[in-house]
Simulated assay, not measured.
Amino acid sequence: EARWWRKKLGGGLRQAGYLAAPGILALTEMTERLQEDHARARMLAEGLRKLGLHVEPVETNIVLVRTESAGLTAEQFL
Results as ranks from 00 to 15, higher is better:
residue 8 K to W: 11
residue 16 A to E: 09
residue 47 G to E: 04
residue 20 A to E: 07
residue 64 L to G: 06
residue 42 R to N: 02
residue 24 I to L: 10
residue 16 A to T: 06
residue 65 V to S: 04
residue 55 V to L: 08
residue 1 E to G: 14
residue 31 T to Q: 14
residue 34 L to P: 02
residue 12 G to Q: 06
residue 38 H to R: 13
residue 45 A to I: 00
residue 29 E to K: 07
residue 8 K to S: 12
residue 35 Q to W: 09
residue 71 G to H: 05
residue 38 H to T: 06
residue 45 A to R: 03
residue 5 W to S: 06
residue 10 G to Q: 10
residue 24 I to M: 03
residue 47 G to W: 00
residue 70 A to H: 08
residue 31 T to R: 13
residue 27 L to M: 07
residue 33 R to N: 08
residue 68 E to Q: 12
residue 18 Y to C: 10
residue 39 A to T: 03
residue 15 Q to K: 12
residue 24 I to A: 08
residue 16 A to H: 11
residue 4 W to Q: 11
residue 39 A to V: 10
residue 33 R to D: 13
residue 54 H to V: 12
residue 7 K to L: 14
residue 68 E to I: 05
residue 74 A to D: 12
residue 22 P to G: 02
residue 49 R to F: 00
residue 36 E to C: 06
residue 60 T to S: 15
residue 78 L to V: 10
residue 70 A to K: 12
residue 5 W to G: 01
residue 1 E to Q: 12
residue 78 L to R: 14
residue 58 V to Y: 06
residue 10 G to H: 02
residue 51 L to A: 06
residue 34 L to I: 14
residue 2 A to T: 09
residue 74 A to N: 07
residue 26 A to G: 09
residue 48 L to M: 05
residue 60 T to P: 03
residue 67 T to P: 08
residue 44 L to I: 02
residue 56 E to K: 11
residue 59 E to F: 14
residue 45 A to P: 02
residue 50 K to R: 15
residue 78 L to N: 15
residue 43 M to N: 05
residue 72 L to R: 01
residue 38 H to N: 14
residue 78 L to I: 10
residue 38 H to M: 11
residue 48 L to N: 01
residue 6 R to C: 04
residue 4 W to C: 04
residue 51 L to V: 01
residue 44 L to Q: 03
residue 76 Q to N: 02
residue 46 E to Q: 07
residue 65 V to W: 05
residue 40 R to F: 03
residue 67 T to M: 09
residue 9 L to N: 06
residue 47 G to Q: 07
residue 72 L to Y: 04
residue 42 R to I: 01
residue 45 A to V: 00
residue 17 G to A: 05
residue 64 L to Q: 15
residue 46 E to I: 00
residue 2 A to Q: 12
residue 41 A to T: 03
residue 46 E to S: 04
residue 34 L to W: 10
residue 38 H to S: 09
residue 26 A to Y: 03
residue 46 E to A: 09
residue 17 G to F: 09
residue 21 A to S: 05
residue 61 N to S: 15
residue 75 E to N: 11
residue 75 E to L: 09
residue 47 G to N: 07
residue 51 L to Q: 13
residue 9 L to V: 01
residue 31 T to F: 03
residue 19 L to P: 00
residue 60 T to V: 11
residue 5 W to C: 08
residue 64 L to N: 15
residue 22 P to H: 01
residue 54 H to R: 13
residue 78 L to P: 04
residue 44 L to V: 03
residue 23 G to S: 10
residue 22 P to C: 01
residue 17 G to D: 11
